[in-house]
Amino acid sequence: MTADAFLFWFLALITIGGASLVILMKNPIYSALALVFTMCGIAALFVTLDAFFVAGVQIIVYAGAVMVLFVMVLMLFDLKHEVEAFSKGRITGAIKLATAGLLAGLVMGAIFYSSTAVDTVITKQLAAASGDPSKQLGMRLFTQHIFAFEALGILLLVVAVGAVALARSKGGTHHDQR
């Protein structure tokens, strides 16, 4: 087994294990920590795919900021009693599981079926990579995708205002009736 293949299987094990723990752990704090683990694994997978800058950003944004927020909120709440971690109903639960399984099966089947086709498509090299990939990324982002970039800036502003407004409210979404 080559080093690349070993690395992939190792990281796949980590990410799938972490993701399973996220949905299986009853205590949400453990779920959050498992998700951090998964995200670091995904960042490492990005590195194996030569996307170094995105991997770094993944760790900074997800593991370093978003998940810290989650963990902090969970620790602030300090949920004493998690009465029902999972939704009730065996039949509905089974249907939900089956739906997710079906989706996974469909996607994987499609990938298996089309993998030969994909392999032939990818042989044509688009835009041969030259120079610093991070520089290329920046050039592309601020020329081709400048509109999306600006729109995201506006979205972030709206979200920041909205989040502050929501968090400052005294509790509940409307005050007068229950």
């Binding site: 993701a19 949400p28 949920l79 997710a100 993998s115 990818i122």
Partner: peptide, 26 residues
């Protein structure tokens, strides 16, 4: 290890996330 491996891994992770959304109450 090629493109299909990564895509299948991605599909598995996506489905796990979907199960979490459907089954968890928190």
């Amino acid at each position: 290890v090629g493109i299909s491996h990564y895509l299948i891994l991605s599909a598995i992770l996506f489905s796990l996330g979907m199960i979490g959304v459907l089954l968890r109450k928190n």
